[in-house]
């Protein structure tokens, strides 16, 4: 794995204000969509982010794109803070592009494929020969040049998503954020899109932030995986490690809940951790570890103290946020103190 870090996310938080309490003591009610997330993405890798709906994975994507500003924390691209200036410089915008989940709504139905692909060119590469560039982009994603005169509704779902990928590549980016790129597609066409993404990454040296809720897709595509639960990262590991040796109880529950289609896969699932309970509302997060309401190994400490990230791997790089793993004493003490002060307040 090539070592240098392209994208570094540090203690990222995004709290949305959804209402206010009281009339006299007016305090905002917030949804902690992303609540203290840190990770780094290395050049040329596919970093997977998995999580259930409402876990904050798309919010991270949108912050990376600059569609939201973070409440606190930061993201750096090649050492440059993405939020240093009020408006993101065009040179930085060009480097990070996104492919959305549903190509039906991310492509303008009233524009031809040519017009769709021309817009990023017009902004980021105004001197290029646009027609040539459009043909080159279509060729890059294996679509015939005649397609430029078609409209999105004339294409199948898979082809539409391929056009969305071509549009993301129009600015010649180095990082592409893929926000559930295949979850709107049927399995029989999903493979074509995923293989295209793999080929493009190899040919163009792209770095992917790949967001999905489908762990089986993740297993085959990502080099490292982070799993999110209610705005926090529960576990990060290299893909092999993540699937062969999941540590966090939530990861185990998730893996044992996936419906699979062969005995071989059934054997790979961890011993059944029966899924229980409901996902708590992100407006009203439980105290302590946010997973304690559903955790089969819940202890007293989980209900009071929020766990910290602990390296659990033999060779490092496998990080889980759970009290089951021995926390370094000074960190544990600190966490206890924070919890106690919060209780006093």
């Amino acid at each position: 794995m090539s070592g240098d870090v392209v994208l570094r996310v540090e203690n990222l938080k995004k709290h949305f204000v959804v209402g206010h309490t009281g009339v006299i003591h007016r305090e905002p009610i917030t949804v902690k969509a992303v609540d203290g997330v840190s990770f780094e993405i290395r050049r040329g890798e596919t970093f997977g982010i998995v999580g259930e709906s409402g876990s904050g994975k798309s919010t991270i994507a949108y912050i990376t794109m600059g569609m939201y500003l973070p409440t606190s924390g930061t993201i750096t691209y090649d050492g440059r803070d993405l939020f240093a200036e009020k408006k993101r410089p065009i040179g930085l915008k060009k480097e990070i592009q996104i492919v959305f989940q549903d190509p039906g709504s991310s492509l303008n139905p009233r524009q031809s494929i040519k017009q769709i692909l021309e817009l990023p060119l017009r902004i980021h590469n105004p001197h290029a020969n646009r027609l040539e560039e459009v043909i080159r982009l279509l060729d890059l994603v294996d679509l015939p040049p005649e397609y430029m005169h078609k409209y999105p509704r004339q294409l199948s779902g898979g082809e539409r998503q391929i056009v969305a990928i071509a549009r993301a590549l129009a600015t010649n980016p180095s990082v592409v954020v893929l926000d559930e790129p295949t979850s709107a597609l049927d399995v029989s066409v999903q493979g074509k899109v995923l293989n295209l993404l793999i080929r493009l990454q190899r040919e163009l040296g792209l770095t992917y932030m790949f967001i999905t809720h489908d762990l089986s897709v993740m297993r085959n595509l990502a080099s490292r995986v982070a799993i999110m639960y209610l705005g926090r990262i529960a576990e990060v590991a290299a893909t092999e490690q993540f699937f062969s040796n999941p540590q966090h109880p939530y990861t185990q529950m998730l893996l044992s809940s996936i419906p699979v289609i062969s005995e071989e896969e059934e054997k790979l699932k961890p011993a059944k951790v029966v899924s229980t309970g409901e996902i708590p509302s992100p407006v009203n997060l439980p105290k302590g570890c946010s997973f304690h309401t559903r955790c089969p190994y819940v202890m007293d400490v989980c209900k009071r103290v929020d766990p910290v990230m602990v390296d659990v791997g033999q060779r490092g790089g496998h990080i889980a946020r759970c009290h089951l793993f021995e926390q370094p004493p000074e960190v544990a003490q600190q966490a206890e103190a924070v919890a106690a002060s919060q209780e006093g307040a």
Binding site: V187, S188, V189, Q190, G191, K192, L194, N195, I198, D214, L215, S216, V217, R219, N220, L221, F243, L255, I258, V260, I261, S262, E264, E265, L268, K269
Partner: peptide
């Protein structure tokens, strides 16, 4: 259809139908 389903056991992504 079965070949197109990504496997938890890895082995890459099939081209689909």
């Amino acid at each position: 259809l079965m070949a197109a389903v990504p496997r938890l056991s890895g082995g890459g992504i099939s081209e689909g139908i």
